[in-house]
């Protein structure tokens, strides 16, 4: 477990927020992969889970989150509260994963 607490609550259970350090954010834009798309083409006939895409988006969100955490650490925070994710299609075949929250100090 990382030592920095990330939560989408407005508070950290059992702790007191002593300082708000401002908005921190992270994003990444990922495009689809041709190989994965061929599989997706087949799956579009029979249905079912597109595991390649599930992993792709999950990894991309992890990356966006770690960028946000880096920003928070640079501000001297030990927690990020009220985290929100958002996903948008930039063009056909590419998605932006965006995460933002408020960096705080807790004790």
């Amino acid at each position: 477990m990382r030592d920095l607490i990330v939560t989408n609550l407005e508070i950290v259970p059992g702790r007191t927020i002593t300082a708000h350090l401002g908005l921190v954010q992270g994003n990444t834009v990922r495009s689809k992969h041709l190989g994965r798309d061929i599989m997706a083409g087949l799956k579009n006939i029979v249905g079912g889970e597109l595991k390649g895409y599930t992993e792709l988006l999950s990894d991309a969100r992890d990356e966006a989150t770690s960028r946000m955490i880096e920003e928070a650490v640079a501000l001297g925070a030990n927690a990020v509260v009220n985290v929100r994710y958002s996903t948008s299609s930039v063009t056909a075949g590419a998605s932006e994963l965006y995460v933002y929250g408020t960096a705080v100090r807790i004790e």
């Binding site: 950290v12 259970p13 579009n44 249905g47 889970e49 597109l50 988006l57 969100r61």
Partner: peptide, 15 residues
């Protein structure tokens, strides 16, 4: 004390 952000996702194809 504390809490951990957890998530789950899934992509499902349209047949």
């Amino acid at each position: 004390a504390d809490g951990v952000l957890v998530s789950g996702n899934v992509v499902i194809a349209v047949d």
